[in-house]
Design a protein around this nucleic acid. Structure first.
Lengths: 342, 342
DNA sequence: GTTGGGTGTCAAAGCGCTTTGAAATTTCTG
DNA sequence: CAGAAATTTCAAAGCGCTTTGACACCCAAC
């Protein structure tokens, strides 16, 4: 069933039917009713490709999904997508996901944009001096960045959380509890958020004249396994750290296992603060020792970014170009006063 | 830059350029070279919407993502998508994801299909007597189902794992170890895999004249939290089960916490076998007591389904319509002989 | 020297929609 | 009740691509 058939069925021109469907004022209410009725009966749906060709708009947001054999999928990706989707469904938008080798993301993004398949772009997993920014600017297509790119002029539309502030505050709390030996379990070091979190820790420590040694930092994929390995390394250091900052609750899971296996007690021998993206599968309050966290909902960020993107496409703006969300520091039982020097 | 401009630039007709680009034989090799060279220089990309309108093909796979405020995202979704993507990127296919309220999936699927935006469909989260199957059959668009629908004639193209066999085997192992009191922590009970896993357990028990009591079964979202709650319930039963079957490693995480909190030892007081979808974030071999699992890679399933889908669209078939993958039973330390009756 | 079969190229139609500019119809005004 | 204004409908062009059918050209064959 296409427009032509439908209009013949109704004895109207395609123009009138199209206008009736798209809410134009210059069509009789009675006619509109008839058209709507016929649509219901026939199940007619406009062909999106044709619509897009004619209007240049397609009601879709494009994003690149890094993937390759051996490339680990990321829990956070799904959660964020759920947020985007929650908003998209309200506006009848959909997503076009272009899978791409992680090494080929700039090109994949360009292909996606030029393909004419999408109205707006979303990008994430930002790196320091991210080469995608220049590409996006040259594109004249709306986009929003999740995160920022350390070292690049912050003149692009983004939504980010205050990673530096979060880890600064967390570190301060641990300092106030008397800790002096710190370690940081971070995400991959080329990623922007990892850089900023490290800086947050370092600057809080610097205020007390402390430094973060190289061997008290780990940069790795944020999995259970890497958490375990990193913590095992920390625990074997001659000057064992007592305060651990951790970039993810998933990673914290492995870290805590290492603490337990070493016969140490969380919240007493070792204090730990993890960043919580509010993943439904893993709640920090349900850990056997509930986790102190810096919290910011990834999903909420997804909803907001979708709002901005869709709003821009629909000219519903203006939206703020830059948003920086504060995180919450939620104190639970995994943090406690520094143990007495033994 | 579009075809017309490109052809004018080259002094050729659109036809010739189009043919050169699409590898048709009736074009001079020298001409083809010239065209390819120009494409490289100008960065020309064909407009996908126009291509799709002209050919009816778009190089895309459609899927519906259930989402709504309050609807929990699912770790497995991201992992599966990574598998789909891994294969799709090899064929320059992309995905169109239509977010939909979980209650509206049939309609969303229909919209997606009729929109003309996709060449093939993929569906998952199958339920018993799933209403989407009838819809898909009426659609004349290729599709592959991940999972099956209990109670429906198995005459649709699917890829599933042998859930019943997996849990049957796991139960048999525990029976051989002398266990007699069983409990099952399952996924939501309307889902097909949950039904089949339960049946697997029940039939293995029946062979020994045992039954699975109602209070030894839990059906819930497969999260850490639900695992904790379910296990706590089991442990408070007057006749405490000693053998637990669990539908997910994420759920097992919470379950194990409950076991520890009760002062019991995994692999001694309580034996546990979980189903492992091979999620990169959570490896059963790294648990403090390594987990005995039934294993089947979700990601591999994604790759395979993408193969079938893309192959069908490209007429590269034929593919088997029904595939049932066996799972592996991998014995680690979380299972042991039934404790002596105290 | 005509016929026949490749080979390389082209103009034009068509995919299903939106939108422009004009025409037909109805309604209002003096 | 004529003429203007407003309302409703329409035919046709255009979005960027693929594909059909035709055309010109060249070389081998009779």
């Amino acid at each position: 069933m296409n427009l032509k058939q439908l209009s013949e069925l109704l004895g109207l021109s395609q123009t009138t039917v199209s206008r009736a469907l798209n809410g134009y004022p210059e069509v009789n209410e009675a006619t509109r009713e008839r058209v709507l009725q016929a649509v219901k009966e026939t199940g007619y749906r406009p062909n999106k490709a044709a619509q897009r060709l004619a209007t240049g708009k397609a009601g879709s947001i494009g994003l690149v999904m890094p993937t390759a054999p051996g490339h680990q999928s990321d829990v956070h990706f799904g959660e964020f997508l759920a947020g985007l989707g929650e908003e998209a469904v309200r506006h009848d938008f959909h997503f076009v996901i272009m899978p791409s080798d992680p090494d080929d993301e700039v090109a994949a993004l360009r292909r996606l944009a030029i393909s004419g398949n999408v109205d707006a772009l979303f990008i994430a997993y930002m790196r320091g001096h991210d080469p995608r920014l220049a590409m996006l600017k040259s594109l004249s297509m709306p986009y929003v960045v999740h995160g920022r790119s350390f070292g690049a002029e912050p003149d692009y539309p983004y939504l980010d959380i205050d990673n530096e502030g979060a880890f600064y505050d967390a570190t301060r709390l641990l300092l106030q509890l008397g800790h002096t030996r710190f370690a940081l379990m971070n995400g991959p070091m080329h990623l922007d958020f990892a850089i900023r979190r490290r800086n947050g820790v370092i600057s809080a420590l610097a205020e007390r004249g402390l430094t973060l040694e190289e061997d008290c930092m780990s940069h790795a994929l944020m999995t259970d396994e890497q958490g375990l390995l990193a913590m095992e390394r920390f625990l074997q250091l001659p000057e064992r750290p007592t305060a651990i900052l951790c970039s993810s609750t998933v990673m914290a899971l492995g870290a805590i296992r290492a603490v337990n296996q070493a016969g140490l007690r969380l919240g007493e021998d070792i204090s730990l603060i993890a960043h919580d993206d509010v993943l439904p599968l893993l709640k920090p309050e349900n850990f056997s020792v509930p986790l102190t966290t810096t919290r910011s909902s990834l999903r909420a960020a997804g909803v907001r970014i979708a709002q901005r993107l869709i709003g821009t496409v629909k000219q519903a703006g203006p939206f703020p170009e830059q948003e920086l969300w504060k995180t919450e520091l939620i104190v639970r039982a995994s943090t406690g006063p520094a143990p007495q020097q033994s």
